[in-house]
C-alpha cells in the first residue's frame, strides 16, 4: 500500500494536483477550513458524502449543498469525498452519479477532496474488474486540475473545471 500511495502521490502531483496526508479526519477538516480561509472565502459547496460537515459550519464557514442556479452564486471552493484512488494513473475515483460529488468537483475554482480511508487500486485493471455498486452507477476519474493545450500546445490549467485540486487523504500511513 505504501508503494501505491507513493505512486499516486508522484503522478497526481505530477499533473499539478496537490496531496496532503492527514493522520485523522479531524486534521483533514481543520486543514480544509484553513485552506478555505487562505483562499480568501468563507463559503464552500459541500457534497453530502463528506464526513463530519459540522466541523466546517462550527468553524464559521457557510455551507452550500444545493447547486447554484446562477453562475455568480458558484462558490470558490467545492468539497467532495472521493471513495478511491488509482495509483497507476494518479487519479481520484469519484462517485459521479451523486449530484453533490459531481457538481462540487467540477464547478468551483478549487476542489478539495477528502479521502477518508479510500479504496486503493494499484492500477486501472483492478478498478474495472471491481464488482461494486459504484461501477454500475457511474464514476469519474479525476487526475488533477482541468486543463487545455488547444492553443499551440501551451498548457493552461483551470479551463472549464477547477484550477486547483487538493486531495486530503486520511488513514493511509
Amino acid at each position: 500500500m505504501q508503494r501505491a500511495i507513493e505512486l499516486f502521490w508522484e503522478r497526481f502531483t505530477g499533473y499539478s494536483g496537490e496531496v496532503i496526508l492527514c493522520v485523522s479526519l479531524r486534521e483533514a477538516m481543520q486543514r480544509t477550513v484553513a485552506l478555505t480561509r487562505k483562499i480568501g472565502t468563507d463559503t464552500v459547496g459541500l457534497s453530502r458524502h463528506v464526513p463530519v460537515p459540522e466541523a466546517l459550519s462550527n468553524a464559521g464557514l457557510h455551507v452550500m449543498h444545493e447547486p447554484p442556479t446562477q453562475v455568480d452564486d458558484v462558490p470558490v471552493v467545492g468539497i467532495t469525498a472521493p471513495w478511491g484512488l488509482v495509483a497507476e494513473t494518479g487519479s481520484l475515483v469519484i462517485h459521479d452519479h451523486d449530484p453533490g460529488e459531481r457538481l462540487w468537483s467540477l464547478v468551483c475554482d478549487v476542489h478539495i477532496a477528502i479521502l477518508d480511508h479510500p479504496r486503493i487500486f494499484n492500477d486501472l485493471d483492478e478498478l474495472f474488474t471491481e464488482d461494486s455498486a459504484h461501477l454500475s452507477t457511474g464514476l469519474c476519474l479525476i487526475s488533477g486540475p482541468s486543463r487545455t493545450a488547444d492553443i499551440e500546445k501551451k498548457l493552461v490549467l483551470g479551463m472549464h473545471g477547477p484550477r486547483r485540486v487538493i486531495a486530503l487523504i486520511v488513514g493511509v500511513d
Partner: peptide, 27 residues
C-alpha cells in the same frame, strides 16, 4: 474491464498524457 487498456493507452498515444484528466463512466 475493457475500459482499463483504453483509458490507459488512448491519451498516452494521442498526446503523451498519462491519462485524460476526466474519465467519466456514465451509467
Amino acid at each position: 474491464a475493457d475500459l482499463a487498456p483504453l483509458i490507459r493507452v488512448i491519451p498516452k498515444n494521442a498526446t503523451g498524457q498519462r491519462i485524460t484528466n476526466y474519465c467519466t463512466v456514465l451509467s
